[in-house]
Amino acid sequence: MDAMDGFDNKTQQELQQFVENESSKAKLNGIIHDLTDRCWKKCFAQTSSISSGSLSSSENTCVKDCVGRWVDTSYLIVKSLEKMR
């Protein structure tokens, strides 16, 4: 990589580590964008117009449960697939 020219080995390693950390952060952000979109659609499907910028306690519960059940679902699928082998 041309950009690495002029950096010594130690600095190159540091930079590589930094880039790896940043890309796992980017991956996590991608998951959160997807999940926010999904839970927004689940929890506000019945809401015809937005009357408040903040979350009511039932909306807050819905969003949190949505995240929890999403993670449960993905674990359950992995477990079920393992049993099928």
Partner: peptide
């Protein structure tokens, strides 16, 4: 509606983020 929706969506983003990371 759009202004409130914007604020609400960002709140949901933050809630999802902290809930997911916690889990």
């Amino acid at each position: 509606c759009v202004t409130k929706c914007l604020e609400k969506y960002m709140t949901v983003w933050n809630t999802v983020s902290s809930e997911y990371i916690k889990r």
